[in-house]
Amino acid sequence: MTGNPLRIETSGGVLVGFVVLAVVVFELRTVLGMLFGIDVSGVVYFPVALAVLVGLLVAENALRSVGSKEG
């Protein structure tokens, strides 16, 4: 599998995945508000969501560099 010449390991997928996840998390507040009537203050929600997402990105980055050292 790793010998496949077409396979190129990139972090492009991480970027795209992160952006798609960010959009999903962003839309989640709309879903809560429109469908469930839960009004979450944007002033609280967006900073917290951003912090969680950035945390995930940092963690992913750290894990990947550990993985590549072991590999």
Binding site: I8, T10, G12, G13, L15, V16, G17
Partner: peptide
Amino acid sequence: LRALPWRDPAFT
């Protein structure tokens, strides 16, 4: 999904 050329702007 991880094996796709996500770095390629045409693809992404």
